[in-house]
Simulated assay, not measured.
Amino acid sequence: MKRAFILSLVATLGAVCVPVQAQEEAANEGAAQPGVKPVRLVSFDGEREFLKSASRLRVWRSEVEYTLEVDSSGTPTDCQLAEEFRMNYVNDKLCEVLMKHHTFEPAQDASGAPVEGSYEGRLNFLEIRQKD
């Protein structure tokens, strides 16, 4: 009887606390950057090189998702793969290609001044191959 009551109490608290926490996080994210214009991709001209590098590195995924940090001049400064590979060398080489071949307009604050920002992208190997 006590065990059933405790399990019921834990389930109820979990159902109440998780949505409240998610709402608070969403409210904090929205309030953090009002009036900010996000980073805008100008071009990415490295699809073939990315495909070649991935083939040499024996990447067997159908797509790669990534985030690039962009400085106030529009230059990528850091790269993070959404699902990293076990070998850091593979992550580094793929990020090297991504950072070299992206061109951006930097993010802008409410006054229009360039600021740091980030860009999230995804490359699908089948889509790249179909372009040829």
Rank of each mutant, 00 (worst) to 15 (best):
M1T: 05
R3L: 09
I6N: 05
I6F: 14
L7V: 04
L7W: 12
V10D: 00
A11I: 12
A11E: 01
T12V: 14
T12D: 00
L13E: 00
C17S: 05
C17T: 08
P19Q: 03
P19G: 03
A22Q: 15
E24Y: 13
E24P: 00
A26Q: 15
A26M: 06
E29R: 12
A31H: 06
A31I: 01
Q33W: 07
P34C: 02
V36R: 13
V36S: 01
V36P: 03
K37G: 01
K37A: 10
F44A: 00
G46M: 07
G46V: 03
R48Y: 09
R48W: 07
R48E: 12
K52S: 01
S53H: 02
A54M: 05
S55W: 08
S55N: 12
R56N: 09
R56V: 04
R58L: 11
V59S: 03
W60S: 07
S62I: 01
E63I: 00
V64A: 02
E65T: 10
E65I: 03
Y66D: 02
Y66R: 02
T67S: 03
T67A: 01
L68E: 01
L68R: 06
L68M: 03
L68G: 02
V70S: 00
V70T: 00
D71A: 00
S72P: 02
S73N: 04
G74Y: 05
T75R: 15
T75D: 06
T75I: 10
P76A: 00
T77K: 13
C79K: 01
C79S: 01
Q80M: 04
Q80H: 08
Q80Y: 07
Q80F: 04
L81T: 06
E83F: 07
E83R: 14
E83T: 11
E83M: 08
E83H: 09
F85E: 01
F85V: 03
R86A: 09
R86N: 12
M87D: 14
N88K: 12
N88R: 14
Y89Q: 13
Y89R: 14
N91L: 11
D92I: 14
D92S: 12
D92H: 13
D92P: 08
D92L: 13
K93M: 15
L94E: 07
L94R: 07
L94C: 05
L94H: 08
C95Y: 08
E96M: 12
E96H: 11
L98G: 07
K100N: 10
K100C: 05
H101I: 06
E105T: 15
P106M: 04
P106T: 05
A107S: 13
A107C: 09
Q108R: 15
Q108G: 06
A110F: 02
S111T: 15
S111C: 11
G112W: 09
A113C: 09
A113S: 15
A113G: 10
A113W: 05
P114T: 06
G117V: 07
G117S: 04
E120L: 06
E120C: 02
G121P: 11
R122Y: 08
L123W: 14
L126N: 10
E127Y: 08
E127N: 11
E127F: 10
I128Q: 09
R129I: 12
Q130T: 10
Q130Y: 11
K131E: 14
